[in-house]
């Protein structure tokens, strides 16, 4: 496959940045999208050009490091697929592919396709924990968890914090991420002591980071590689509203 890439190049945060076209030839349809970019970077290195900077780590869809807006879609055209799991067979020979970084005022561009997603870490720091007594490990099954709650918590825990929801959201909101974190811990008995303060603190941090609000459009769920459902945002809304109205909720 011969592909033409139009890639966002930006030296650093202060650089203006622009789209630059590159050609890559003899791409195997079985290559992953990131392997295709590796091929491009080898070419660029051999010709003495600056390779394209992009985030990646595990390349098996669980670490949440990869990103990329591919033809205007976060993580590309395949549903429930992170960029690292996207294969070139989903593109056609001769395609022109536009690649851009996540765009959000809370995600400053570091270089080329790499953005700083620390804002999501700070949201987790604000309340994404439980208080557990130290000492020896508790016996198994001392705290029983209903199957329904365990499944719900696991569905929320599937969030890999990649930030695709923010990139796709017309309001630049991280509500799906936030909803997943709130639902994850809030569905379990171990997460109950801090349930109110967690929802309040993490929401405060979310807004302080400059993310927008949720208008229930659902673009986030369409691109989420972990399949976080929209109702977790409603869970977030519920927990914040009840957290703010509880006596001693502060």
């Amino acid at each position: 496959m011969n592909i033409t890439l139009r890639i966002w190049r930006q030296q650093n945060h202060d650089d203006q940045g622009r789209m630059v076209s590159y050609g890559v030839d003899d791409i195997s349809p079985d290559m992953s999208f990131l392997e295709m970019l590796d091929v491009l970077n080898e070419q660029l290195t051999l010709t003495g050009d600056d390779p394209v900077a992009f985030d990646h780590d595990c390349r098996e869809g669980i670490c949440g490091m990869c990103s990329l807006m591919i033809n205007g879609l976060a993580h590309g055209p395949e549903a429930l697929t992170a960029t690292c799991q996207l294969h070139m067979r989903h593109f056609a020979d001769g395609d022109v592919i536009d690649i851009e970084p996540w765009r959000s005022n809370a995600f400053p561009v570091i270089k080329d396709l790499i953005v700083d997603r620390s804002a999501l870490d700070r949201i987790v720091q604000a309340g994404g924990y439980i208080s557990a007594p130290t000492g020896s490990a508790p016996d198994a099954n001392t705290t029983s968890v209903a199957r329904k709650d365990a499944d719900r918590a696991f569905d929320g825990a599937a969030c890999i914090s990649c930030g695709a929801c923010v990139a796709a959201c017309p309001n630049g909101s991280a509500s799906l991420f936030l909803g997943a974190k709130i639902t994850h811990l809030g569905s379990l008995p171990q997460g109950q002591p801090e349930r109110d303060s967690r929802a309040v603190s993490m929401t405060a941090q979310h807004d302080a980071e400059g993310f927008g609000g949720c208008t229930q459009i659902g673009e986030c769920t369409a691109v989420c590689p972990a399949g976080i459902p929209l109702d977790m945002i409603s869970q977030l809304n519920h927990d914040v509203l009840s957290g703010l109205t509880q006596p001693g909720g502060q």
Partner: peptide, 23 residues
């Protein structure tokens, strides 16, 4: 950028997009 105090967080959450959407 981290909101530090508990009261600060409470106030910030009270003015959050979540609350505005509820209103």
């Amino acid at each position: 950028m981290t909101v530090k105090t508990t009261a600060g967080r409470y106030g910030r959450a009270l003015r959050s997009s979540v609350v505005l959407h509820a209103v």
